[in-house]
Amino acid sequence: MQLQELSSGNWVPFRGDGGYANLSNGGNTDWGGGTFAADILDCSSGSKTIRIINNDGATRTLFYGVNLIITKLNPSITTSTTADNLGDHTATKNILLNGNYLSNDGGNEGIRVDNSGNVGIGTATPTSRLNIAGGGVKLATGFGNSTNRPSLNTSSIGNYEIRGVGGSPQIDGQDDGFLRLSAGGGTNVNTQSSIDITGYSTIADMNNNIVMRTGGTERLRIDPSGNVNITGKLNIGDPTGNVSTKLVGRVTAGTFLTFDNLRFSVTNSGGLILATTSGSVNFYVEGRYSNGGSYIQGSRTAGTVNYTTTPSTSLFGWGFGSAGDTIIYHFTDPDNSRMYRVTLIIMPSYINNFIAIERLL
């Protein structure tokens, strides 16, 4: 075998000396007869290209364990003094990183791949298929502030999209798929918040829905028909326009149902009482009730009534003696252009009376 360098477009023995550059078949010495070649490849005035070749044309094998060591003695000839410049090469086998990084400057940062195929960026010990430590993630979508919303894609995805696909192995052309975004819960699921997004499924619980959890418990679900199911309370800060919101619950004398800045309860005789959570509010009040028979009565205030954090007496002095008696109140707030409808249904012994509160404006 011979160590050669490219000179004026021709391959010639290294340093122009065949005796210096040749290594006999089966030889176990190093080029140059010493531990390493005794001379240097002078790149001070330009780059050099070298190769190892079977110059006699015979089939030769460069056995595993043979090392070609190039030592840079003049750091000024390259921008890096910590790694060799490998140039442009095409790999013909897997690259063995041997626990090292793929790094721009040769330092201990960049991309780390472990023996199971997990890829770490910014970490030497990735614990998932892609583990990013620090720095965050950005998607450059190419959209501007006048870009229209893109159409939905099927088997392909856009550069603005993250998708969970089904199949094992992966089948992009199927309609099933699952994606979960979660935070926390490293030791206990009740400390985790998550959002599940599902595609088509034959399992009803997993079919085309979005599920949101806090504290490891489902709080909101959007089903395939667009229905939104919420297990907790819905608080809307200050909607504009005609927005109807509702809160329902059961109260016993002394317990309150709170909606916006209002608190509602009943008296021991079944009348509705009202207070605010803070400050005061002025309402026109109108009410109608049925006492379980054909008797219906109604009343209204001539002007606004001021309500504060102190619970009021029973509105209109009404009390109801029979389970099932139903009263509907309307509260109009002229100062804030709001209107509420409250439905009260009396339960036996005035325990767990039903109240529905709707904001109509």
Rank of each mutant, 00 (worst) to 15 (best):
A204L: 02
G65K: 03
G271F: 12
D260K: 04
I162N: 07
T147E: 00
D260Y: 08
S194I: 15
Y160I: 09
V12E: 04
G87C: 00
G136T: 12
Y284G: 02
Y340G: 04
F143Q: 07
N131Q: 13
S103Y: 01
L220W: 11
G237F: 15
R163Y: 03
C43M: 11
G199H: 03
E286C: 04
N85Q: 07
I236C: 05
V137T: 15
G122K: 09
M347V: 05
K93R: 15
W11S: 07
G57W: 08
N131P: 14
S294E: 09
R213G: 14
T191P: 13
R300I: 13
D325F: 08
H330F: 09
R60K: 11
D114T: 08
R338T: 14
P75N: 03
V189L: 09
D175A: 06
T240P: 08
V251D: 04
R263H: 10
G158D: 06
W31M: 15
R219Q: 02
N148V: 05
D196V: 08
G136S: 04
I355C: 02
G117L: 03
R51C: 06
P169V: 08
P169R: 12
S155Y: 11
M339Q: 06
G27R: 13
I357T: 02
I197D: 01
A124K: 02
H330L: 07
I52F: 13
